[in-house]
Design a protein around this nucleic acid. Structure first.
Lengths: 253, 253
DNA sequence: CGTTGGTTTGATTAATGTCAACGCACGTGG
DNA sequence: CCACGTGCGTTGACATTAATCAAACCAACG
């Protein structure tokens, strides 16, 4: 099922979708576009009127600093929206760029408005936004209170869970098409330090790296080491676990 | 106008409210409750069904770490919602506690749903959520890429702008009823270091501290020093600038 | 007064940054 | 097929930032 639309796979965690919902969601992901690695999808200050959705690849939100440094504040994985919100905020306060080659869709704003007339989809999109926020909070905790090796270990756990939720990881293995410099920009740490910390995790037998393929060798140990608790991702236990009992839909908006 | 309902003052930055909207918003802020300093409003894991709104005082979102440390991931100022979202996510992935004595309102979920049937209010609440997210991103940048003194300076600039937006700061002065330990928990820095960094800012003539009263002595210099750019707060230039031309209301939800 | 919570100081150590160089794989043009 | 350039990973020596530990200090308050 790894080739199923990652958006749907993801949103299933946020709301109980009907076949009709799924059909509708599939219909927005038709006019795909292939974008090279290291291309900007949107830049800080711009006012786009379409919403970008990543269907495949690896992208990020980032801010440039005046000293030329870059701070990556989020990784965007298959199924992630880039700028669902920007219509309300007016202009982008950060940029979005690909890290690896990506398949993206540009969804016109009217289409989004149409989607959100469907209560379960609207709820799922809210859910996705709020999970993004929860991830930001957890990154802040990592950045502020965890030493670099635990921070990196925590990030790898998060990526494993998020990628698994969209069928992009299996058996503790996933692709991380990112340079150590980019990792450093996400961790707030120098490239040199990323390299050393990575070595330590390998020496400790927690992970292995073959090219850009990450293998989590001992997830329980890595989880313990980084004090990772997946609660903040608000995923259902099993992906697509339809056996969970029905919850009311509190149409917040 | 500093005693006007801070929620309304804040939301005016996010949408063009009508008198009717304002009347409605005022009506939710009636059954206020006084909460002592250092009390939890909600704890991680709980599933509250009311929404908390801070009307006065100083609160924070935080997460506890297993080593006993605390990470403060947001400051909640007058006009800020604590948990507008939690209905959708199910359970809290962090706690919320007061730092100073607070006046809070608990708004039942139905009331929120009623509010969001009004398009301008719905839009304003979306806006508030997205600004919270933007603030998180900026904190992440600060944490990852700014040395502690710039990080602290940046935070003070942010607080000045946010408090000014709700009429709680004037002339570059505002109350910061927070201990240095709590500041450290927010900056991801030890108490001792907060103290030293604070001294430096005072020695450099950028700020002054009399008790819990912060005075920004040289805002342009502090802004430059911390590379603060208020864009991410998405405030209108002048508070309540009704001269701005009408923008369409993209009822996202 | 003595206690308590918060701030301040100094000495020492640990984490991470910076600079500089090297190695290695890959691709490209001669 | 080879020489070279380029991007990325790796290493070592050294500098800086911030953590830790411990103590002193200070004001508020019962």
């Amino acid at each position: 099922m790894a080739t199923e639309n990652p958006l749907i796979l993801k949103l299933e965690h946020g709301a109980r979708l009907t076949d009709e919902d799924r059909r509708l969601l599939r219909s927005v992901a038709v006019e795909t576009r292939l974008v090279d690695a290291r291309q900007d999808l949107i830049r800080e200050g711009e006012v786009p009127d379409a919403v970008h959705l990543v269907l495949d690849g690896f992208a990020c939100r980032y801010k440039m600093l005046d000293d030329g440094g870059r701070s990556i504040v989020a990784f965007l994985l298959p199924g992630d929206f880039c700028d669902l919100h920007v219509a309300i905020l007016g202009h982008m306060d950060h940029s979005i760029g690909t890290l690896a080659p990506c398949i993206v869709v540009e969804i016109p704003r009217v289409k989004i408005e149409e989607l959100t007339t469907h209560p379960r989809i609207a709820r799922a999109l809210w859910w996705a936004t709020l999970v993004d926020e929860a991830i930001l909070r957890e990154w802040l905790v990592s950045m502020g209170r965890r030493p670099a090796h635990k921070q990196l270990a925590h990030l790898l756990c998060e990526l494993l869970f998020r990628l698994r939720a969209v069928g992009r990881a299996s058996d503790g293995m996933f692709e991380l098409p990112v340079t150590q410099e980019e990792l450093g920009d996400a961790l707030g740490v120098s490239t040199v330090h990323v390299n050393r910390v990575l070595q330590q995790l390998r020496e400790d037998g927690l992970i292995s790296l073959q090219g850009r393929l990450v293998t989590i060798l001992d997830l329980p140990a890595l989880t313990r080491f980084s004090t990772f608790n997946p609660n903040y991702l608000h995923l259902r236990n099993g992906p697509r676990d339809h056996a969970v009992k029905e919850v009311q839909e509190p149409r917040l908006v």
